[in-house]
Amino acid sequence: MHVLKKQLIAASLPLMVMFAMPAHASQCDFTPDKEGFDFSFTAFGAPDKSYVVSGNRFTKYEVASESGKLLNATIDIDASSLDTSHDLSNGMGGEWPDSIPPVRNENVVKNLFMNFVDPGTIQAKIVEIKDGELSLDVTMNGETRTVPMSYEVVDGKLQAKGSLDILDFNASEAFKKFEAVCTTIWHKGKTWSTVDLTFTVPVEEAGC
């Protein structure tokens, strides 16, 4: 009898483990509404990062997904379409006049993006999504790096945040040219190569 009891317990263990697994072990499947897609980045100047330029965008880009899902969705960006007009803070408690963003746009495009080996081109692809984190493969200056991003879904919108370092993309020479212009004129002696990324997109969830 004891042997039979042990055999029954052993046979039931896989089922016990399966039913004990948390519900969130399944992988979320997100179907995005690309018409509601929005993204931006924040750049920093000054030794203490007190000069913050937020809400920077590109006006020309193409979002695509062969499967219609968020996983493996891509974005191709024309970096020459940079628009930095959202944030006019001058880092000194005041605001820049409206004439400044076009100058700032040109400085970034001409001295950074157009000095890439593939001038003015940035691509990104979502290669993994799991438990509040996703992996974004970013390609620029001929280099691809994986950028980890955290995300949450609030009121039907997936909101993702992460950061990247431009120097990780073999872009030290391009960044030096950009830094030479911006550090002296704009950034109080320090231009940061790290930028914060955000994107939001309405999604339909399944399997969560």
Rank of each mutant, 00 (worst) to 15 (best):
G120D: 11
G142C: 12
T144W: 03
E106F: 13
N170F: 04
V153P: 11
L112R: 08
L134P: 08
V127H: 01
F116K: 12
Q159W: 00
N111L: 10
V153Q: 08
A160R: 03
D168I: 03
L164H: 01
T121R: 15
P119S: 15
G162S: 04
A171R: 05
V153R: 08
I166M: 15
V127D: 00
K110L: 11
V117H: 12
N115P: 08
P119L: 12
I122L: 13
F113I: 08
I129T: 04
N115I: 10
L112V: 02
E152H: 04
S163C: 06
N107P: 01
Q159K: 14
V147F: 04
K110M: 11
G162W: 00
V109K: 11
S135H: 05
G162P: 03
D155K: 13
G120H: 09
G142F: 11
K125L: 03
K110F: 10
D168P: 02
D118E: 15
V108Y: 07
D155M: 12
V108H: 09
A160T: 01
A160F: 14
K110W: 11
P148E: 01
S150E: 12
A171Q: 12
F116I: 10
S163G: 08
M114W: 13
G156R: 14
A124M: 10
A171P: 02
S135P: 00
L164F: 04
T144E: 05
N107K: 03
M140Q: 14
P148C: 07
N107D: 10
K161H: 10
T139P: 01
G142L: 02
D155A: 12
D165W: 06
M114D: 14
N111A: 15
